[in-house]
Amino acid sequence: MSKPYSFQRMIFRLKQYWDERGCIIQEPYDVEVGAGTMCPETFLRVLGPDPYRVAYVQPSRRPADGRYGENPNRLYKHQQLQVILKPAPEDVIAQYLGSLEAIGIDLSKHDIKFEEDNWESPTLGAWGVGWQVMLDGLEITQFTYFQQCGGVDLDVAPAEITYGLERLAAFLQGVESVYEIEWTEGFSYADVRLRDEQQFSVYNFDVAEIGTLWKMFELHEGECQRLLAGWAKSEDKDRYPVLAAYDHVLKCSHLFNLLDSRGAISVTERVAVIARVRKLAVGTAQLWLKQQTKETAA
């Protein structure tokens, strides 16, 4: 058997595979997100009738999942490869299976199961149905047919394929800990990312200043609200900065996650704060849709 792909070659190979299938290959979005789904390339592009095909790696930050770099399988920040196929082609699952073959998994020697796993994000007003894809008992991919985003029923149901890249690489390379993954020759995952995990776990769990986080949350929320409210009176709707409003939604969402991992959100507050973020997300999605469809009525 030939040497398994390094982490970065596996990513190159997957990007190439989806490039060959007509996808735009995007770079990661440069605002913190909890999942690739939240990037505008997914969250906004799935809205409306226009076809879109895109693939990108997205570092996804979940402060509460941090383990100070001590757990072999859990990370504060992991990398997802996110593929959006809108509309979903009829052979979408066969295409997906082909991508596994492309990174060196001989499916005739492995066991693949599609187990029901529906996806829902209350903060984004989004949900879909689908599966977790199990490879020899390991969940390697979340496969979702989106139905709703930002509280809006989608015109066409796109397929979202989210690969967990660390898991996949650990599987390919046969290592027990993500930190042992070979990133590229001579460099392990730990070499590249361990400090990141350690320091951000300390920050997220122990050090982040709660008052400051709340202030930042409110600033971003306020700016987002200001932009949402300004749409109606805007005379230049084509260039109205809906995308900037959405960046502030993402900031709020990340700050909420930070506050949560810091233990700063009580039970009663929790539902209310989620509702605040959701309101921003839904408002932005609706404006985006209006802007795309040139529907200018407020």
Binding site: P72, N73, K109, H110, D111, L135, D136, G137, L138, F171, G174, E176
Partner: peptide
């Protein structure tokens, strides 16, 4: 090749 078995064993170990 016993790959499915060793894969499942690895997952269970984790």
């Amino acid at each position: 090749d016993g790959l499915v078995r060793s894969g499942n064993e690895r997952v269970l170990r984790a």
